[in-house]
Nucleic acid binder design. Structure first.
Lengths: 249, 249
DNA sequence: TCACATTTGTCCGTATGTATC
DNA sequence: AGATACATACGGACAAATGTG
């Protein structure tokens, strides 16, 4: 804060950004800290911009820039209108995925190397899936495969379902770090599927079939067999994803 | 843009955000697109805020909010002063790491599950390291180990060097996706090392020794032996990292 | 060293769009 | 439909930082 010349100087501000930090950074940092501490939880509403500014002793402009940062980081969303304002909403993972996708474009990465990494990571993760899978996970996987089959019967390609299968697997690993990493990778895959929307029912059916086989292996806790099928699945995916569009501008 | 009532209406604006998009989002999106297209490259300077606003036909305030987004995403940095202004600087990976660290705190993840995931991912990656390692990578690894040893001789703990070892390994995999993922994981490890700065020379020496052994295995392209040592190393790391501070608020 | 120019940082005031009641 | 409360966006001003002559 460079100015504290508020003529109505009854609101003495107890808030000071430390040297070198800009005011809006200090404000966004303070709010983020409150979110981390659990003072604000998802669904809670923050005061309107004017009120936040009053409490921190900064202008609305400064508050707005702070809110932009929090919004971009996935901690809040903002609504206009009478009962609107900034609201705590946990979309951090989605924002992280968007950023990863940006980097993917920016660095001109290839789907080939993405798939290669996915290959190794998913296989490593799968070990824990077999160890820790619970009944609810199996149910989710079964439901997923069923929905994919229904789409196939309607001559519809179950892209999203087939991607979701791997997200469910990640959840079943009971390791949040794997979940995040898989989410990053799959969000890129999902993005390119929705971009070039090619219908290949035969290949989709093959994938659903392999998913079903993996599911059987999981139920029977047959790690070796499951991993073999997973291998086959990923090879299949690889040929689909990398047959064209090696990298993209 | 809600207002286009510029009395000096000689600057007719050809820029309009599409319905639903806010002006500052449109501006940041346009600039980001130019960066992706290579029109702006790292080191280039963007025009000052006022000029950007003039070109897009928006106010300076709107430009500033757009710049906050680009700054937060790691595409630009900003300097005050006469030769300052927004400059294109590629810090996207660093920003992604910061966001991952935020999520790590926010979701109260444990170093234990981080290490578990790192275990699997690094082992999967290592297969490609052995396949694709080049002389420059070996040189970098050797240099790293030497620097770590020098620190040890000075009774200093080579935390950063030991973490950097794994970044170099990731580079040697020649797969940028692995590099990104490892960067995310190691940035968390680095953060916690610098937080609780405990000097354990004995364990550090042991790690450096294992790094050296892995390096030997790489040089001799002895995958099986290298992986065995990597296993040992990661187990060692695990005991160090998880002996306390399972999760942190 | 010291003034000066440039550019970001921050403030205020005002108008308008938007969603809710 | 109208009033209300909120974000969005505008313009103008001054402070602070930083490089230049």
């Amino acid at each position: 804060m460079k100015k504290d010349n508020s003529e109505s100087s009854k609101n003495t501000t107890y808030f000071r950004p430390y040297k070198g930090e800009r005011s809006f950074e200090a404000v966004s940092g303070e709010i983020k800290k409150l979110i981390f501490q659990g003072v604000f939880k998802a669904g809670d509403k923050l005061p309107p911009e004017t009120e936040i500014g009053r409490q921190f002793g900064v202008s609305r402009q400064t508050v707005r820039e702070a809110l932009r940062i929090l919004e971009q980081s996935g901690f809040i969303t903002i609504q206009q209108g009478v009962n609107g304002g900034p609201m705590i909403t946990d979309t951090v993972l989605s924002r992280l995925s968007n950023m990863f996708l940006d980097i993917f474009y920016f660095k001109r990465l290839s789907l080939d190397e993405l798939t290669e990494a996915r290959f190794g990571i998913e296989k490593a993760m799968f070990k824990h899936v077999i160890e820790r899978v619970e009944e609810t996970d199996v149910e989710a996987l079964k439901k997923n495969v069923e929905e994919a089959k229904i789409k196939l019967e309607k001559n519809d390609t179950p892209f999203e379902e087939n991607i979701e299968f791997h997200r469910i697997l990640a959840r079943a690993s009971k390791n949040f770090v794997y979940m995040i990493v898989i989410e990053l990778l799959m969000s890129v895959v999902s993005h390119f599927h929705s971009e070039r929307n090619e219908k290949d029912l035969k290949k989709s059916a093959r994938i659903v079939h392999l998913h079903e086989a993996i599911l059987e292996g999981i139920v029977e806790k047959d790690y070796d067999r499951s991993v073999l099928i997973l291998d086959e699945l990923l090879k299949e995916v690889r040929t689909i994803l990398t047959k064209k569009g090696q990298n993209m501008a």
